[in-house]
Simulated scan of single mutants.
Amino acid sequence: MTASRYRAAFCETAVECLSKGYSLAVLAGELDVARSTVSAWMAAHPAFAEAVARGRAKGAKVWEDRLAAAASGKGAGNATVIAFALKQIARDDWGEARADAPPAGPGVAVTVEFVRPGHADRADS
């Protein structure tokens, strides 16, 4: 097994790259390693994982600014595409809720009943 190419200086590269709104795949390209190597370094080096988290947070701001501008009509861009990017970069804040995940807050049970217009098919009619 060869020695890891990881260097502490990669933390700065991670923050710089990710703060522009780029993905971990782009970071891997900047570091000239595979995407899986970036994940392994995040697991093995807490400082690198922290740098990635800080860079991603800054990158989320870039995309949220773009979304706000597009939504207000003051900026170019497709809001759907921008929201998709945010779901990838800032999953904790923008990701879709999983069906097996508990609700985010207190829930209220709701019953929905569909009745065809003009028909008294309801049991309480």
Results as ranks from 00 to 15, higher is better:
A14W: 01
K20L: 03
E30F: 07
Y22G: 00
A120M: 02
T13D: 08
H45Y: 14
E64D: 12
A97I: 05
A53N: 07
R54A: 02
P46E: 06
G73F: 03
D124W: 11
R5S: 05
M42Q: 13
A69H: 06
E96W: 10
V33I: 11
V112L: 15
R35Y: 07
A109V: 09
P106M: 04
A123F: 12
V112M: 11
V26C: 01
K61M: 06
V38C: 03
G73P: 08
L27I: 07
V115G: 07
F10Y: 13
A53P: 07
A14H: 00
I82N: 13
K74F: 06
F10W: 09
E113T: 15
A60M: 05
G59A: 15
V108I: 13
D121R: 02
F114L: 15
D121F: 03
S19E: 06
A14V: 11
R35Q: 07
A34T: 08
T37N: 10
E30V: 10
A28K: 10
A90S: 14
A99N: 02
M1F: 00
S39K: 09
A57L: 06
A3E: 10
L27E: 04
G21S: 05
W41A: 01
R56C: 06
L86V: 11
R98C: 11
A28C: 09
S39H: 11
A49T: 02
G21F: 03
A43Y: 08
V115C: 05
Q88N: 09
R116Q: 09
A99S: 03
A85M: 14
A97P: 01
A71P: 00
L24G: 13
A70Q: 04
E64R: 15
A101C: 04
G29E: 04
M1D: 00
L86H: 09
G95R: 15
A123E: 09
A3I: 05
G95H: 11
A76R: 14
A9H: 00
P106A: 06
A8N: 01
P102T: 06
T111F: 11
A69T: 01
T13Q: 06
F84K: 15
A8W: 00
W94R: 08
E96Q: 12
K87A: 14
A28Q: 11
A51K: 13
V26T: 03
V81F: 08
A97T: 11
H45L: 07
F84I: 14
A53I: 04
S4W: 05
Q88E: 14
D92R: 14
A14Q: 07
D32C: 03
A43G: 08
Y22K: 13
T13G: 03
W63N: 12
K74Q: 12
A60E: 08
K87G: 15
G55T: 09
K74Y: 06
P102N: 02
A69N: 06
D32G: 01
G55R: 12
R7T: 02
G107A: 13
V108R: 15
T80Y: 07
R66N: 09
A43C: 06
A83V: 05
W94F: 14
D93Y: 13
W41D: 00
